[in-house]
Simulated assay, not measured.
Amino acid sequence: MTDWNIVTLVGQDRPGIVSRVTRVLYEAGCTLGEASMIRLGGSFTILLMVSGTRPNAELETALAPVAAELGLRVHLDPVQGGLHQHLVPNIQVRVTGSDRTGIVAEVTQCLADQGFNILDLESDVVGNARAPVYIMNIQGTCARTLEDLQQALAGLTIRGISVDVAPIELMIG
């Protein structure tokens, strides 16, 4: 099994972050695995699986100049894992409601109670400051039926949360 790190970088969004960071990692002899990169509220966040032969201190030293230049905070976490271990989601849950504290906790608790394993969660607040609307898309795996999930989530509608549950049909092979 290859030794991997999760490299997290966060900073103000600007062009060239991905190019500069991945160039440094390439020049440091790193292999990139799975990645997630997203803009959140004006900041850009990168999560990368990185493997290489250099010690973590050398990797941090290699990233330091580009991180300083681009105003990025860098964090490395050694992890056990590897490629080709990604689960394929079979259920998608779309949530909308007036933005308020607790929506994510309420929805994800209902899902967890059904044995739903969240693989990806994205959310956004749209509308305007006077009438914000929270939108959340969740993909995951669950052995329960769609009907079971819909019934478990039905109670959220009385709290002003609209939930749509649908299968994800992937063509693999």
Rank of each mutant, 00 (worst) to 15 (best):
L48V: 05
P132R: 09
I138M: 07
Q92W: 00
G173I: 02
R144P: 02
R94Y: 02
L48M: 09
R94D: 05
G127W: 08
A64T: 13
D77C: 09
R39H: 12
A129L: 14
R20Q: 15
L25V: 11
D77M: 15
T96W: 03
Q114T: 12
I6Q: 04
G127K: 09
M37R: 02
I158F: 01
A152Q: 13
L40H: 04
A154I: 06
G102F: 01
D77I: 09
D113E: 13
D124M: 09
Q109R: 12
L149M: 05
R144N: 11
L146K: 11
D148F: 01
T2N: 11
R14I: 05
I103S: 00
I46N: 00
L70A: 09
I158V: 12
Y134T: 07
I17T: 06
G11M: 01
M171Q: 12
N90H: 01
L48R: 07
M136W: 08
I17M: 04
V125G: 03
N137A: 08
Q139C: 10
I135D: 00
V66C: 07
L70M: 15
P55I: 07
A129Y: 06
A112N: 11
R73S: 14
T8H: 02
T31F: 04
G173V: 06
I103P: 00
L87H: 08
G97T: 02
P55S: 08
G41F: 08
G115M: 09
